[in-house]
Nucleic acid binder design. Structure first.
Length: 434
DNA sequence: TCTGGGGTCCTAGGACCC
DNA sequence: TCTGGGGTCCTAGGACCC
């Protein structure tokens, strides 16, 4: 039985949250702003129709002819977090397995629901979420996460509740053909530019591009995306959230900050906030990075960006210890006569409290088949992709195993001689044989 | 005048060990 | 024709995500 993924995504989430608490906003253009009311981070459909762009600076809103009609909100993240929990709790009732992917998105395990219409079931879930929380939700259904994203995008575009791409290959093909390569999950701006310059314009084009070519140009993540578009799942549902690896507290300043004292005050506040985050999560930091930067949009100010990382004497989540180290780092990077616009404290090397890391070694672990019985690509397959047989003078292939206690982390094999050294990571890339 | 905040992963290459 | 092989750990920078 093959896997089926649903991607449930709240429509215009923050704007929809504001509407739940003020139904008079229904049908009106609603916009939510970032911290400091800096730029637009959510728009209702009506606001989109007026030409409000994502990420647009708030002051530019006033240039729109219809700006007086737009209801503008400062962000209220505690509210959005609470609404998110309610939506997720609802979704949980309709699947045995749920992965909360972001504040407004969740992947649902819909495998084994094939005896009824998946799109009917999806529509039912959407209706229930709307009824119980007031938040409009759409669901994309497909054989892989990447395809489910595409299905969801279509659902939103066509103002449908659920879109199911599992029904026929023809349907999937049409969806891929109608999706620009830049709109594929995992393909960002740079990737899209590169692909377009080679004539790969749609998701369908990417799904049929030669695997080795994609692997060479877009690394293992791109190769995975390509396979997922073809219906081969490379990304699993992860219902257990992993421990966080970093924690960041940063802000843009409303006006430029110029003195070490003022900057220190801000950094101390960020450090305290970071320490509290860690305590809530039961984590401790091993080191602290402080960064400061001037306003990159300024055409007149001299620019300065800098950062420093300092190890803490021992892993901790105590405010005093983290603040002290953060301020030491700040003193190292501060430059007088600069107008700083943003600063932050990044806490690194997070580990569950009481455990300070260490490494485990054990038996060699080099899987050759994946969980579905497919053969996994080996490092030598990749070398041959890249250089072609017979041209290799020296190669080193690193295989990164799937981890887990008792498993050795890396397995490297050196062959032949002379550079270029070629290293690749092992990342469970399934190979489908014709 | 005014342009967000918080994350993850991958790669290349170096340092260092036996 | 001409060279060591195997392993761990770390970092900077880039790319991507919501």
């Amino acid at each position: 039985m093959s896997a089926v993924f649903g991607l449930a995504d709240c429509n215009n989430f923050y704007a929809s949250c504001e509407r739940v608490f003020d139904p008079a906003l229904e049908g009106k253009p609603v916009v939510c702003l970032s911290n400091n009311d800096g730029c637009v981070i959510a728009r209702s459909d009506e606001a989109k129709a007026l030409g409000v762009k994502m990420g647009e600076p708030a002051f530019k809103l006033r240039r729109l002819s219809a700006w007086r009609a737009i209801r503008v909100f400062s962000s209220n993240f505690p509210l959005y977090g609470d609404m998110s929990r309610r939506v997720m709790a609802t979704l949980e009732d309709f699947t045995p397995n749920l992965e909360i992917y972001s504040i407004d998105e969740a992947f649902l395990d819909l495998s084994g629901f094939g005896d009824r219409s998946l799109s009917d079931y999806g529509n039912f879930i959407c209706a229930q979420a709307r009824k119980r929380t007031g938040i409009p939700v759409s669901i994309g259904i497909a054989e892989t996460k990447t395809l489910a994203k595409i299905a969801n995008r279509i659902a939103k575009k066509e103002a449908r509740g659920a879109v199911d791409l599992t029904a026929s290959l023809k349907l999937r093909r049409a969806a891929l053909a109608a999706t620009g390569v830049g709109d594929v999950w995992g393909v960002g701006r740079r990737g899209a530019e590169m692909l377009k310059s080679h004539g790969v314009l749609t998701a369908l084009d990417l799904s049929t591009a030669p695997q080795a070519w994609v692997r060479a140009r877009m690394s293992v993540t791109g190769a995975r995306t390509r396979m997922e578009l073809g219906g081969v799942p490379c990304l699993d549902l992860e219902s257990q959230p992993a421990d966080r690896k970093t924690a960041l507290v940063s802000r843009s300043f409303a006006r430029p900050v110029e003195t070490l004292d003022d900057l220190g005050e801000a950094v101390a506040a960020f450090a305290a906030g970071g320490a509290e985050k860690l305590r809530k999560a039961g984590l401790a930091a091993g080191s602290v990075t402080v960064f400061i930067r001037t306003n990159p949009f300024s055409k007149t100010d001299p620019q300065h960006n800098n950062a420093a990382t300092l190890a803490l004497p021992m892993p901790t989540n105590h405010t005093a210890a983290i603040t002290k180290t953060a301020l030491t780092a700040l003193r190292r990077i501060f430059k007088a006569d600069r107008r700083y616009k943003k600063a932050g404290v990044l806490l690194l090397d997070l580990a569950p409290q009481g455990r300070t890391g260490g490494s485990v070694q054990g038996d060699l672990f080099a899987p050759r088949t994946d969980a579905r019985g497919g053969r996994l690509m080996t490092a030598f397959d990749e070398i041959n992709c890249k250089f072609g047989r017979g041209t290799i003078r020296y190669a080193a292939a690193g295989l990164k195993a799937a981890g887990g206690p008792g498993k050795r982390k890396n397995w490297r094999m050196n062959q032949a001689h002379r550079s270029p050294r070629y290293t690749t990571n092992w990342n469970e890339l399934p190979i489908v044989r014709a």
